[in-house]
Amino acid sequence: MKVRVIAATVMVLLLAGCSSAPARLAPSPAATPTATSAATPKPAPTAVIDVPVQSSELTAPVATVPPVRIRVPSVQIDIPVGPVGVGDDGLMEIPFDIRTAGWYQYGPAPESATGSTVITAHVDSFEQGLGPFAYLKELSAGAEVIVTAADGADYRYIVESVQNVEKKQLPLDQVFDRDGAPRLVLITCGGQFDENVLNYSDNIVVIANPA
């Protein structure tokens, strides 16, 4: 008997739910004043839609775990990685040491659910010679890349493509993508070298997907 009553009540609630106001709010037709003063007491109404509510208290930001090492066994790359940002010239910062790679710290990290982890290193310098990232252009599709994060976790990626892109045509919003599928993007320089401005014409871009 008791069970039956509860069931009936649930039915009523379900029916009430079905017939209640539409769940989507719409603009008022012409901002006409709504009917006022309900003389008869009514039960407390329930909200028509479920709106996410959170506290506005000050909270400490959640830090991402940075990558600290990158290995590409097929071309003998095994170098440390440090966090970098943006220089005063608006270009991505890159470690002076050509045997250290820089991770774009404002973008995704290997643990991120979405977007591209971007790691770059200088291809060369007059004082230091040719750097390990000079061998990126030798990579084949299917090559393995291992990125180690500061917590010791290894993230494995498989190279999808190696591209030679003229710098002024590099789609920066896509390279530094934060919302798409998780990927690893390795960048260095290549193409022709302009002796007058000491600058390469192209970027070498490696795109790798989680293994």
Binding site: S56, E57, L58, T59, V86, D89, G90, L91, M92, I94, Y104, Y106, T120, A121, H122, V123, D124, S125, F126, G129, L130, F133, A134, K167, L170, L172, D173, V175, F176, R178, D179, I187, T188, C189, G190, G191, Q192, F193, E195, L198, N199, Y200, N203
Partner: peptide, 26 residues
Amino acid sequence: LAIQTIGGLHSAPRGVDAGSAGFAAD
């Protein structure tokens, strides 16, 4: 104090200049 944050307003760096000597030039 109350805090509200709205993200996704970032932009990308202006480019990546990753070499200065020409040793790796085609």
